[in-house]
Amino acid sequence: MDKVKLRRELLAARASLSPERRRANATFIRETLLDQPWVQMAGLVACYWSTGTEPETHGLVLALWKHGATVILPVHREDDDLDWAVYDGPDTLAPGRSGIMEPVDTRRGVAAIRTAALVIVPALAVDRTTGVRLGRGGGSYDRALARVGPNVPTVALLHDGELVEGIPAEPHDQAVRWAATPEGLVRLPAAPE
């Protein structure tokens, strides 16, 4: 399976989803995650601010923050790595270098993700047999995930039909331990017992 072709097909499928379906997906995913004790107990959560047709995270970030978690969001660096800064409410975001909303708080450094008790990442798809995620191709999240400890839950948010088999893996690709879809939460082979 060619990654470029797969990305194109997945982006086209996402574009065909109605706004109502995307909102419903976001609600199901948010509620499923918030029902998990390991999500409720996470004091520091690394997440992302969704854009376009990604599964929407704005409500999830706000809910985690309102429930007392410290939420850090990525700040895209010039070298395509991810720095991290604390989210302190919707008024503390501004457009970043790629137009995606980022926190205006002090940058915590690329290693800040090491201290997260839960890491939520974007993905276009995840391989159900290996946990390898297919991103946009820049490698930013693979670098960030490589810094996460082996027992920290890493969760990719997906729309229906994006948990697939046969995603080609390259040496730098990092597996996630969970996939959250509108149908529920799926534990992947990379998840510790």
Rank of each mutant, 00 (worst) to 15 (best):
A175V: 06
R14G: 12
L10H: 05
A169Y: 00
M41E: 13
G99L: 01
P182W: 15
D142W: 07
V119K: 04
L134E: 05
R30P: 03
I100L: 14
L185P: 10
L124P: 09
P150L: 14
G109R: 08
L124A: 12
I29C: 05
R136H: 10
V61A: 02
E183Y: 06
D88G: 03
G131S: 10
L17N: 02
R187M: 05
S140D: 13
R108C: 13
G96D: 09
R30I: 06
I72V: 11
L17F: 02
P192K: 00
R133Y: 10
S16W: 09
I167A: 00
R133I: 11
E54C: 08
H58K: 09
H67N: 15
A190I: 13
G131M: 07
T106V: 15
Q174H: 08
P153H: 15
V148H: 09
L82C: 01
A26Y: 04
V152I: 15
A179W: 12
P150I: 14
L93P: 05
P19H: 00
A63L: 04
L64I: 09
Y141T: 13
A94P: 04
W84K: 13
L73I: 09
G131P: 05
S140Y: 12
R133T: 13
I167V: 14
T129V: 01
T53Q: 14
E78I: 06
Q36A: 13
L10K: 05
N151V: 13
P55V: 14
A156L: 14
A146N: 12
R107A: 12
L6T: 06
R136A: 05
I113G: 09
R8K: 13
R30K: 11
A46M: 01
A123D: 02
L33V: 04
H67Y: 02
P19S: 02
L134N: 08
G52P: 00
A15E: 08
A117Q: 15
P171K: 12
E20S: 07
W178L: 15
I29K: 14
G52H: 01
